[in-house]
């Protein structure tokens, strides 16, 4: 997976654009591996977790996949988005540290446990409006399909798809550079 190259990724993305969902998942996994090694290489000092950069890059790539032209190389496109999101993550971290100093006492009293579920995207998910949150977490955390989610929540599939897409867009918006 780690060694996926330009031609392979471009082929998968073209297939995905044509509606092949398996190809899309494979593309995302290949991209995740590439961005992960990029982020680990670039982030030498602490403060930003490379995996957060991986996740935010994947989300941005998903929502902005219409900005890749099928005749253009895909790796420069992926790296440009990863670099942009990494700078974003560092800026956000800078702001958050300022806040943390103000609330130093509380922070000391209750040290935060770093766990996998507390990724930045996970936190953003928690702040979604309830309608979007139940749909997104049903699919992401609980691993349900669109159909299962629709039955479980007694919604129709179109409504689930709309809530999912809006939820993802809202999460991405929280990471937008300000």
């Amino acid at each position: 997976m780690a060694g996926m190259n330009e031609a392979e990724l471009a082929r998968l993305m073209r297939a995905a654009t044509a509606g092949d969902e398996k190809a899309y998942a494979e593309f995302l996994r290949g991209t995740a591996a590439i961005v992960r090694s990029f982020a680990r290489r670039k982030i030498v000092q602490g403060g930003v977790d490379p995996e957060d950069v991986v996740q935010e890059t994947l989300l941005a790539i998903h929502l902005k996949r219409h900005t890749w032209r099928q005749d253009a190389p895909i790796l420069p496109w992926i790296y440009a988005i990863a670099r942009f999101k990494m700078i974003d993550a560092f800026r956000r971290r800078g702001r958050r540290i300022e806040i943390a100093i103000e609330e130093f006492a509380e922070t000391l009293a209750e040290p935060e446990q770093e766990t996998v579920s507390e990724r930045d995207i996970g936190r953003a998910l928690d702040s979604l409006p309830p309608g979007q949150r139940v749909v997104v977490s049903s699919i992401s955390v609980d691993g349900n399909s669109i159909g299962e989610t629709a039955r479980k929540l007694n919604m129709n599939e179109t409504a689930v798809r709309v809530a999912l897409h809006r939820g993802l867009a809202a999460i991405a918006k929280r990471f937008g550079r300000g």
Binding site: A32, Q55, L59, H62, S117, R119, I139, S140, R161
Partner: peptide
């Protein structure tokens, strides 16, 4: 959210389309 979970979630949203940039 784990990265694998995120990938599955994005995959579920693969059919969403936006207006082409052109």
């Amino acid at each position: 959210m784990k990265t694998d979970e995120l990938i599955r979630t994005l995959g579920a949203d693969a059919k969403s389309t936006v207006m082409p940039l052109g």
